[in-house]
Simulated scan of single mutants.
Amino acid sequence: MSQAPESLTDLPTWRAESGAPAPRRVVRADDTLSADSAYRLACEGTGLLWQGDFHNARQLLQALMRRAERKPRKASKTAEAPPTPAQHFHLHRQALGQRARTLAMVLVPLNGDYTIPLRRAPDLRQACTEAWGPATGEACMVSLRELLGLVGAHEWRKKGLEIPALGDAPNNRIHPHYGVFSPVRGEYLDLVANTPLPNKTLAFDIGVGTGVLSALLAKRGVQRIVATDLDPRALTCARENLKRLQRIDKVELVQADLFPEGQAPLVVCNPPWVPARPSSPIEHAVYDEGSRMLRGFLSGLRAHLSPQGEGWLILSDLAEHLGLRSREELLGWIAEGGLTVLGRYDIRPRHGKAADASDPLHAARSQEITSLWRLGSAA
């Protein structure tokens, strides 16, 4: 039986985009550590600071993924009722969180210039700089899984994502930055592309993200767009995309929580669709704890609508099928905001998970509808 690695005391600075705390215990790991031993240590919350070949570290991470994906043994049959959709969702999130914590225990060192002091390590300085900014000169250690996420984001940023609603190639690509939600769900873009515009003089884009909706509104002929976001990364990403698409002259970017000053005849918002707690900053584009952004938009919309103006709320009903929010709650928030529903356009999702029966949330996803709610001020 192999002896457990010794715990290290003199460690580089911990870096985690997710905000996760550093492992309480860190041991030295290299090519001699078996995958089973590594998995046991990782499950215990022990960080494995890699000292060997970089490619072997990636292979170890893949081995841990396979072990983490093993189906648990079925519990003995009891008289307990099956979980509700909401309970099933939260159990699924807990399982994903535990899996992420385990896989995050494979650590790699980074020098102060973002080079990796390991054999056969690739040059990831550009990916690190894009995500974290210029190197500070301070060595650190980072989860290998997070580091590989930076590489994936760098490739998306370089390649871009084709958005058919923006027109013909090559001037229809959006390049998402690290930490900014990628517009992979094309159906909500189709809703914005095809809904009749109430006015083309001015629009507010609340939560600009990559800038895709601002670009789409500009393509449709809106003369001026004021786009807001609280995240500096999103504002930088939107500015670069709008410049590339030659739409920046029509868009003013403002750092703000929800609304800019003034009123507009069209106010568009695509908030996070699922009211659950994000586990990392990156998840804020998907999960909106307590429906904070949704409720803030609905409660403040009327004050920012011009007379006869429209607010466009783009929202999936997935949360309703998961039992996390009811249609009655949504309609109640609309009424409380002094708003009325002028109309609604619906579309079925086209993404792969909607038809994937093996997805743990397939029952809810198979019923999902994305809607563009046209809202106006109540009389």
Results as ranks from 00 to 15, higher is better:
193 A>Q: 05
287 Y>T: 02
200 K>W: 00
301 L>R: 04
291 S>V: 00
303 A>D: 15
323 G>Q: 07
285 A>L: 08
279 S>G: 15
264 A>S: 15
209 G>P: 11
281 P>Y: 09
233 R>W: 07
222 V>G: 00
330 L>Q: 08
249 D>F: 01
233 R>N: 13
196 P>L: 02
240 E>F: 00
305 L>C: 14
232 P>N: 11
223 Q>K: 14
208 V>E: 14
247 R>H: 04
306 S>H: 06
305 L>T: 10
276 A>Q: 04
295 R>F: 04
250 K>R: 15
335 A>G: 06
194 N>E: 15
261 E>F: 02
289 E>K: 02
301 L>G: 05
277 R>D: 14
306 S>Q: 15
256 A>M: 13
229 D>F: 00
320 E>V: 13
312 W>V: 03
193 A>P: 01
292 R>Y: 06
295 R>M: 11
248 I>T: 06
231 D>L: 09
266 L>I: 03
226 V>I: 15
222 V>Y: 09
239 R>M: 08
263 Q>L: 04
297 F>G: 08
300 G>P: 06
207 G>C: 11
246 Q>K: 13
282 I>H: 13
208 V>K: 08
239 R>F: 02
309 G>T: 07
275 P>R: 04
228 T>D: 12
206 I>K: 01
195 T>K: 01
284 H>Y: 07
216 L>E: 10
270 N>Y: 09
254 V>Y: 00
294 L>G: 01
271 P>K: 02
251 V>G: 09
254 V>M: 05
